[in-house]
């Protein structure tokens, strides 16, 4: 194995690495053992606090919570797609009076913390006779993810080879036709993996509903532990559900990426679930 950082190891280095390997494995085992021992002595591994995992009623509640969370993520992404297409295409417009407002809207919603947005929407429009916590969360997610989708879309359209648009103009298509018939369909293929990654981000961010008591997994978790007093176990279960769902979606994104685009890296605007990865322009976010 050759690597930019180190040479192919010789026999002595291989032996040393074997020593490191053994030491690491031992350290990890000791760590895991210590954690388990602490949990065991505190009675956290007893049957009682875990019983809700095999109780049908609690399982049903957890299932409903998971389902609600999934619908929130899907609704948010579906709305975000509409928002993203409108503002993404707006940002690509030839008219400055259209381009700049779209740019400002997209930049604003990407720069403001999602939780601040959700809290504002909930306390301004959600409480009382308002739209309620569910839609406050979904609309907050829509605005933030829509702004990211707008960026993904712009990057996707710009990634379509230039000749495609030029050829379309050359055969006499209008601007709208070029965008809707030639550029967007090809951009979708490039964008799809990034969009699925964004779904992972949206799914993770549904957990923010905890703060405004929006229905969903974290809310269900809180009601279970207020009833049973087993915070640790519920947190483990909720975390596991989130992680498994997200790993499945991430896996799907990788497969779609391989199928549609080849081995090249996807448009990455998603790290920390927020920012625009490697393509930072420096000035904006």
């Amino acid at each position: 194995m050759s690597n930019v950082l180190f040479d192919t190891p010789g026999p002595r280095t291989v032996a040393r690495h074997r020593l490191y390997t053994v030491a690491t494995v031992l350290a990890l085992l000791v760590l895991a053992g210590a954690v388990l021992w602490v949990l065991w002595t505190n009675g956290e591994l007893d049957y009682d606090p875990w019983e809700f995992v095999v109780t049908p009623a609690f399982l049903q509640v957890l299932g409903q919570g998971t389902w609600t969370t999934l619908t929130q993520a899907v609704a948010a992404i579906a709305l975000a797609l509409v928002f993203g297409v409108v503002f993404g295409v707006g940002k690509l417009s030839d008219h400055a009076w259209l381009r700049w407002p779209c740019w400002a809207v997209v930049e604003f919603f990407r720069a403001v913390p999602l939780l601040l947005l959700i809290v504002f929407i909930f306390f301004a429009y959600g409480v009382g006779d308002g739209i309620g916590p569910y839609w406050s969360l979904v609309i907050g997610l829509m605005l933030y993810n829509g702004a990211v989708v707008a960026e993904i879309l712009r990057a996707g359209v710009l990634a379509v080879p230039k000749g495609q648009g030029e050829a379309a103009y050359a055969i006499g298509m209008r601007k709208t036709q070029v965008m809707s018939i030639v550029l967007l369909p090809q951009a979708v293929k490039i964008m799809l993996p990034a969009l699925i990654s964004q779904l992972v981000v949206a799914l993770k961010d549904t957990s923010l509903g905890f703060y405004i008591a929006a229905p969903g997994l974290t809310y269900v978790g809180r009601s279970i532990w207020t009833e049973l007093g087993n915070q640790f176990q519920v947190a483990v279960v909720v975390a596991t559900i989130y992680i498994v769902l997200n790993l499945l979606l991430s896996g799907l994104a990788t497969i779609v990426q391989r199928r549609l685009v080849g081995e090249t890296s996807p448009i990455d605007l998603t790290d920390v679930g927020n920012m625009q990865g490697g393509q930072s322009t420096g000035g904006g976010i």
């Binding site: 180190f6 190891p9 993770k204 957990s207 905890f210 992680i243 790993l247 991430s250």
Partner: peptide
């Protein structure tokens, strides 16, 4: 990025799990 496979694997698992965990759950 180091040469020891176990360390590589362990760090990889950490990154993969944490990246797929919502921050709110970590706070929880």
């Amino acid at each position: 990025v180091g040469p020891v496979a176990v360390l590589r694997r362990a760090a990889g698992v950490y990154v993969n799990v944490v990246r797929n965990t919502p921050l709110l759950i970590v706070f929880l």
